[in-house]
Design a protein around this nucleic acid. Structure first.
Lengths: 247, 247
DNA sequence: AAGTGGTCTAGACCACACC
DNA sequence: GTGTGGTCTAGACCACTTC
């Protein structure tokens, strides 16, 4: 088959459509390897860069994923796990397999770094002038990365947090376990953003892939803003659901 | 300045960093036009395609936007409008400037098309075997596109919906106004996805840009699933906030 | 060593906006 | 017409995985 630019549709869009057709039609099964870029380039009669352009679009759409030195594969579409959220106020727990009040066996959050950091957004919502500490974590389910989180807390209030992370693993566990804090949600927000290079590497997606961004502010029992968190989530693996059926 | 590939960082990443630096440092002001691709290519000593690669990444990140025949501009970052949502059940209203119970003057939803459509997701959540009707709308605020929505309803239950859209403008307004329906939320979900070519054109973003996807199922007063909606939202213009402070 | 995807170049032509 | 971004090509070399 030779593609050519007839009307308005660019060649790389035609390649994209052709590949979507093959995937949806079952010609390319989930998990299978696609023809190499050079092979498709020859087959379709277009330049290899044109094929790559189409591949990149499909990778961002979550349909393909490339592995350097190995090949390009059709992504196997496992349905995302629903995480149910509730608006009625409740205490935040830090038990291992529980998240947003859902029991999810195999879920694990690990600290991947911490630093003094003066993010303006965090400073504003926490209402703090002093130094802030940021803790970054990676949450995975059965070894598959689900989301990365950044937590900000006032450093003057929790000066020993870095050491406590060694014991408790995650920052919320440290705050709850070490300091006996009772945390509540003040608000949670939902947005979307392109994956940074760093987040993309942690989450095993292409840089620029769409991520769900879930921010939140937590207060302690006295109503003092205590933790600001920004999560970047792989939307193909975890989905947030707000239920209204009283469940 | 001549960029060259020293260590591991690809040239287009270096160009990206350099431009981020100029934007964050105020050297390139919001709304201003960047140097042309050819000019930057010459200045940095790299190929024009390498500059384009960097531009594309920054466009997806929402930092730049290109206008064919005109130039590439630094995006002016207006803070997104917060749309507060509540989990406690309530009636869905279809008044002009109200959305998710927030009064937003200048907000307008217009129908852009309708078709018979058998989306499997919609059929599953609505629990219908018969034909479905899809209605697509564009919601804008003061002329700026905020989000596109697709609504699915059972065609057998609402056979005259296309004609009613002419009168009421939007599908929810038609269902509430013409049929006197009382709609309630069953659930709402949040995810992220890359913009399709069609959505990108409607929302005036680059194809592949990250969008917030807000799905929802609505029931009537008898508890019968009635409307399934999938919204694709520009996250730089509208943000969903779940408040827990009793507001 | 061989084969894959990742990066980069030079050059060309096209589509579009503006003058 | 001029200048901008959008598309496409041919060719080269690099980085990585696998054999």
């Amino acid at each position: 088959m030779k593609l050519q630019r007839r009307g308005g549709l660019p060649l790389y869009r035609q390649v994209e459509q052709e590949l979507r057709r093959r995937v949806e039609g079952g010609e390319l099964a989930p998990g299978s390897r696609l023809p190499t870029e050079a092979a498709l380039s020859a087959e379709l009669g277009v330049n290899r860069l044109t094929v790559r352009h189409a591949f990149a679009e499909l990778a961002r759409a979550g349909i393909l994923h490339a592995r350097q030195g190995v090949g390009t594969f059709v992504t196997e579409a496992h349905p995302a796990t629903d995480v149910t959220i509730r608006a009625d106020e409740y205490e935040i727990r830090a038990e291992g397999a529980t998240w947003e009040h859902v029991e999810i066996p195999g879920l694990r959050e690990e600290t991947i770094g911490t630093a003094r950091d003066g993010c303006a957004d965090a400073r504003a919502v926490l209402g703090l002038d002093g130094p802030l500490r940021r803790v970054d974590t990676l949450t995975s389910h059965e070894g598959r990365p689900w989301l990365v989180s950044s937590y900000w807390v006032g450093e003057e209030r929790f000066p020993d947090l870095p050491a406590e992370l060694e014991v408790h693993g995650s920052p919320v566990a440290a705050l709850v376990g070490q300091h006996g804090l009772v945390l509540h949600h003040v608000w949670r927000s939902f947005a979307a953003a392109a994956a940074s290079v760093a987040d993309a590497a942690l989450l095993d997606v292409a840089p620029g892939s769409p991520l769900l961004v879930r921010e939140g502010l937590n207060r302690d029992a006295d109503g003092v803003p205590t933790v600001f968190v920004r999560r970047r989530c792989r939307s193909d693996r975890v989905r947030f659901v707000l239920r209204h059926d009283g469940g």
